[in-house]
């Protein structure tokens, strides 16, 4: 969080976290495509030649003026592959909230669990309280034929008490529900801290 009192700006950071190919970049692409141009910046993507996220994607959203403050959200994704752990830790620095994008396909639960575990470790390292830190869960790829039942995913990821959304990000379903819930959770958390 950075507050620029001179310009009345409230700058907040949200990171889309999750295993490789779970749909983090797809979320940002859809948000970018469906947000009025005057409220969004460019979508910056640092990708490999195979179109996989190398370091991060970045998108700034503006919300207009709320009570004389201009909230601005910086959305980041992390690279999902396990060997980019160092990059993920760096990108989580200073984050105000997280969208955890889980892959609903059968056979991806181990990757989801490992990613969730490393996310918790990084947040603890950075001094966050997991009980109060805003983490919204998105169960993505619900439209695919081999999607696991939601109850199985909830049990295996241990997301009790967390706000969760079903999504098919490639079609846009659930993308903005997730984003809005995360923004509201982040703003509520910032209010508590001030």
């Amino acid at each position: 969080m950075f507050i620029n009192w001179g310009l009345g700006e409230l700058n907040l950071k949200i990171v889309y976290y999750g295993p490789a190919l779970s749909g983090k970049t797809t979320n940002l692409q859809f948000i970018h495509a469906r947000t009025p141009p005057n409220l969004r910046g460019r979508l910056i993507s640092l990708k490999t030649q195979q179109e996989r996220t190398l370091f991060f994607d970045f998108l700034q959203l503006e919300i207009g003026k709320v009570n004389n403050l201009k909230p601005k959200f910086k959305l980041y994704t992390v690279p999902g592959q396990t060997y980019y752990a160092a990059s993920r830790r760096l990108i989580l620095q200073g984050t105000d909230g997280i969208v955890f994008v889980a892959d609903s396909q059968a056979g991806r639960m181990a990757e989801n669990q490992e990613s969730w575990y490393t996310m918790e470790q990084h947040l603890i390292e950075q001094g966050h309280n997991l009980a109060t830190f805003p983490i919204i869960v998105q169960f993505n790829k619900r439209d695919l034929p081999h999607a696991l039942p939601l109850s199985d995913m909830r049990n295996q990821l241990d997301v009790t008490g967390r706000t969760c959304f079903e999504a098919a990000a490639a079609k846009g379903a659930g993308v903005f529900d997730t984003l809005k819930a995360t923004m509201n959770a982040v703003v509520a958390q910032v209010r508590k801290q001030m």
Binding site: G8, L39, I63, G64, N67, P71, M183, N184, V187
Partner: peptide
């Protein structure tokens, strides 16, 4: 300074609903 008033959360939620 105390610039984030009590109704900020409610007004913020209404604003993002109007965008998306």
């Amino acid at each position: 300074p105390s610039a984030v008033s009590d109704d900020f959360e409610m007004n913020f939620a209404a604003q993002i609903e109007s965008i998306w």
